[in-house]
Amino acid sequence: MQEIIQLTAAVVGSIGFGIVFHMRPKKLKWAALGGFLSWASYLVLVHAGLNEYLCGFIAAALTTAYAEIMARSTKTPAIIYVVVSTVPLIPGAALYRSMNALLRQDMTVARAQGLYALIFATSMAAGIVLTTLFERMAVQRSAAENKS
């Protein structure tokens, strides 16, 4: 049940970000699907027992693949879809808890949560970069083939 509530919230949150970032209203449904995909894939991976950072990495990579496909088919820069879709993965809660613990001088929690936020955000970014690097290679290859 908790998962269903979270998924719904992720979908609605992604739509909200689409609005905040001036996405065209017609494309908001794709933002919703992206938010769903990123959080659903993360949940599935976590339940499969994988390391959390690895889950973030793979979920971000998959979501970016979705974003690249949507970018192609709707002729929109991929970053738009990447941003609104990966929002649920951003470790905002860990950051808050880390700073909260820091101000209460609870250094153990502050360090643990802060490191978690930093490493998780970096894993996500690495996942996004991985997919975009592959996409770039594919584009360059097809451009080279068209020339020859």
């Binding site: 609605v12 949150g13 909200g16 609005i19 905002g92």
Partner: peptide, 16 residues
Amino acid sequence: QMLGYAVVSGSFTVFF
């Protein structure tokens, strides 16, 4: 825009 901000804040409060 205001609707967007409300939707994001509210839904992530539930999310967590």
